[in-house]
Design a protein around this nucleic acid. Structure first.
Lengths: 340, 340
DNA sequence: AAATAAGATGTAATCGATTACAGAAAAAGT
DNA sequence: ACTTTTTCTGTAATCGATTACATCTTATTT
């Protein structure tokens, strides 16, 4: 309620506001004696700079917006930690936009950016948020995409080798003797989903089994896996090698088929994607690709910081980090009778 | 890069900056004709108000800080959604502080509040963040606590009936015939943890078995459950009724003992706390108390908004929401031989 | 000791929007 | 047509910190 201003501190220390400002921003431009007096006045008055005034004058906010499609998805929560590591260290603050998978939530964050409340934006939602006729890109604020690239946007992106990993998933299943395949998608139409599906198809084609893949669609959630499992259970001739575009779907699938008496991995093998912590605790432990989530966040934040500092030229447009296949409990040899 | 100012719009529309400002803030104070002309100029120029200037002048930021102990914990992510529901509707923005269980991360958010970058604070970490000699409470900014109360602070809090539920957990296990009990704690010393442990003890006392409870300590994580399970497995005379202060620990425990050949719930029963989505997909499905997480968030946000609007008197100091016991797969009758 | 350079500090303009107050225009009343 | 009232609009102060520039000290060189 009080409102201690820089002028109050200046008066208390017997100097000008300019000097107080210097003490706080460039301590070495000021004599030791003055410095001490000012710091004492700051302490006594309990002064904290008003950031609105500072932002107005400096035209910087030292704040970055991070857009997540859904924050309850551990993947994004984890990437966020990496972002936080990096930005905190550089003195930047973070505003998190949780879209909860609803595109109409984008609007308000467009305003946030256009009204210059942030110095940069990190997107994990795979598209440039729009609102009315305005786009987040209009402001000229630096943007970096993480997890998903944004095609034809020219926006630097930090992703993983989705395609390569998905291809490997197909090869791995084929090698275990599986001949009928199922694919549980992520949100249809998204870049990330498309890449993973293509990779899986490529892998099957390379192994010579691309004809036989059943595809179940839905968002990146548990419920998609549950729905896929229900469809699976209704089939007469079931696939035995399943690849899910995210761990949550994979786990939803496993749990649901198990309840119907199908054994994993004896009757059906399942591979997930992401390597969320929870995948270590499903039963059986989920075979999956572990993403370097925290590193994605750190790398993205580093790139953004460079752009904010005007070194956009130094930023790689496409960084693709490798994934690690964790061979665990939900995959095994195909059941004898189904082998090709 | 451009920087369209309100003065530019005013010039374009042939009016004063005051009028432009009015059109945007109080459209009914201005003639229809003028309104139209200004809106047209706004559209043509692509004007968006500079929020730093606005915040400086109005002394409000329309932004709220939400402090979470750990964002990868689905409990807090879920509460955050409820907060978001409410604040977004009222036009407020959200800054999320993810402490990642490290107290030293509090510091920067103290500055954030003291420098008036937010109009209010929602705490989920069970304490008032401190930094240096300053406390987040010093600024006179409205604060509301969620999930955990902050004793002796006078800060309004929205919590659940932790104690009542924990007591019920004890009664439930006792009623199933269990006579030897285990308790997997949350972060020792926290209000929430203390409440849950006390409740569990009370319940055991009421049933007459309070002598026999083993306590394993650790934070609210999977790994605490894993460690508890390892200790459990080393015991000669093992408890059969386990209550965990959070679902993640419960799941970590279940998975780990299962790997060692212990059957759940035949050999040991486990009750969790929280009702995270993941608990629906563990094997067996976790018996737990479901918290109304989103409602906690909404209620907390509503209370904070009232305080911001100067109606602090209208705010209940202690709101305690009920929990729902989900009786599921990880609990069952005590093994015959152990019955008392 | 004087001249010059380097360093520290102060003055005042500036960032961009809001709003109290005054003044102009329109509407209503006589 | 002329006041009076009501409704709009403009002028200019204000929010609080930063910083270019000027001025005044202190240090260095000759």
């Amino acid at each position: 309620m009080k409102g201690v201003r820089i002028a109050d501190v200046a008066q208390l220390a017997g100097v000008s506001t300019a000097t107080v400002s210097r003490v706080l921003a460039n301590p070495d431009q000021v004599r030791a004696k003055t410095h001490k007096a000012v710091m004492e006045a700051v302490r006594r008055s309990g002064y904290t700079p008003n950031s609105a005034a500072r932002n107005l004058r400096t035209r910087r906010t030292m704040t970055v917006l991070v857009v997540a499609p859904r924050l309850t998805n551990p993947v994004f929560a984890q990437v966020l930690r990496g972002v936080d590591d990096e930005l905190t260290q550089s003195g930047y603050g973070i505003i998190v936009a949780n879209l909860d998978n609803q595109t109409d939530r984008e609007v308000r964050y467009v305003d946030l950016v256009l009204s210059r409340q942030v110095d940069g934006v990190l997107l994990m939602n795979g598209r440039i948020p729009q609102g009315g006729k305005r786009s987040m890109g209009d402001a000229g604020v630096p943007i970096v995409a993480m997890c998903s690239a944004i095609p034809d946007s020219g926006i630097p992106n930090i992703t993983v080798q989705d395609r390569e990993a998905s291809r490997k998933a197909a090869e791995y299943l084929a090698q275990l003797g599986h001949r009928r395949f199922g694919y549980i998608s992520g949100l249809p139409g998204t870049y990330i989903e498309t890449e993973r599906f293509k990779g899986f198809q490529d892998g099957l084609a390379a192994a010579g089994y691309d004809e036989k893949v059943v595809r179940w669609e839905g968002p990146f959630t548990f419920s998609t896996g549950v729905a896929a499992a229900q469809a699976f259970l209704r089939m007469k001739k079931r696939p035995t090698g399943i690849f899910a575009a995210c761990d949550e779907s994979a786990i939803g699938f496993v749990k649901t088929v198990q309840e119907a008496g199908v054994r994993v991995p004896e009757d059906v093998s399942v591979i997930g994607f992401d390597g969320i912590e929870f995948a270590d605790f499903s039963e059986p432990t989920l075979t999956t690709f572990r993403q370097p989530l925290r590193e994605i966040g750190r790398t993205g934040a580093q790139a953004l910081l460079k752009m904010i500092q005007g070194e956009a030229g130094q930023v790689d447009l496409n960084v693709r980090l490798p994934l690690q296949l964790l061979e665990r409990g939900t995959t095994g040899p195909a059941p004898e009778k189904t082998r090709g």
